[in-house]
Design a protein around this nucleic acid. Structure first.
Lengths: 153, 153
DNA sequence: TGACTCATGTCAGCAGTCTGACATACCTTT
DNA sequence: AAAGGTATGTCAGACTGCTGACATGAGTCA
């Protein structure tokens, strides 16, 4: 099938390119996490808990960009594996603050290093200024997509 | 649960921000495509076929960032719905060149307008120069992720 | 205080995508 | 010409994440 084709050229669409970049990152992450027996969401959950101990299921879900139902399933699995712990009863409201166990921290340590490597690969050809610029641009895109109520008043 | 929280601040990680942006775009696209009875991959497939008539199943899969198995399932559905057509036999090799039907083109037209609106929303606060810069940056990231063989010789 | 609203946790069912596997067709290389 | 390698199409099973729904707890407002 026209094997030498250099690739599809919808390449003027930033939406398409964003999807392409995210897909490439996703694949790269999967590739390094699979040997560790972890999925991306699994890793994301642990990383979130390391940086923000005590996050609830719903907060973890938002942070990992999945529904709270999906995160709930994952958390139950992580709990069974002894990677995280949750109190049997909510100290306040219904939210159950989750914490990493020592075992969870150990597993995260290995995964985190691998993920950092992937991210560094991705940014290998970008200097500090370009990385800053990229943060600005992505932030602007996210903001525009999440607060469109700012259009008609 | 600390409801007023401005959001998690792993915000120095470009990998995380890229995922966040892609997720926001994904949600926005889903929101406008669902009322049309289409998924994002469904739309992507039609859009690819409009711009590159005759693409094979495998090529469509690569263009839509899914496996060829997934695209195969989708194509069979689209064929049943009369949105695309494929020859019963491959003119060359095993690849079946797919084409949009008039009905497929009609459906795409509506969806495409909605998607374009979403993309314009996303880029609302970026001028032409910034959009160009973003293309460059994303392209660099994709390249670095997909051709890491350039590390050790 | 009581009604309303919102956020949360959780269960059940469903949809989309993936992995694994196999057969076929073309292009090398020997 | 034969053999190996690669790309493709397709079937089957499994998994992940999502939607829908319900109950509980906290804050808000009349």
């Amino acid at each position: 099938m026209s094997q030498g084709e250099p690739g599809i050229e919808l390449d003027t669409s930033l939406g398409y390119m964003l999807k392409a970049a995210a897909s490439a990152l996703h694949s790269a992450l999967e590739a390094v996490l699979r040997p560790l027996g972890m999925t991306i969401t699994h890793y994301s959950c642990l990383e979130l808990l390391a940086q923000r101990p005590g996050l609830s299921n719903s907060e973890l879900a938002r942070g990992a960009f999945v529904t709270r139902q999906s995160m709930n399933v994952l958390l139950q699995a992580l709990e069974r594996q002894g990677l995280v712990v949750r109190p049997a009863q909510a100290p306040v409201g219904r939210a159950l603050p989750t914490e990493l166990t020592a075992r969870g921290r150990r597993q995260l340590k290995v995964a985190s290093a691998a993920v950092r490597r992937v991210e560094q690969d991705m940014l290998a050809n970008l200097n500090a200024g370009e990385q800053d610029q990229m943060r600005r641009l992505l932030t602007a895109c996210i903001a525009s997509l999440t607060e469109p109520p700012a259009s008609a008043t």
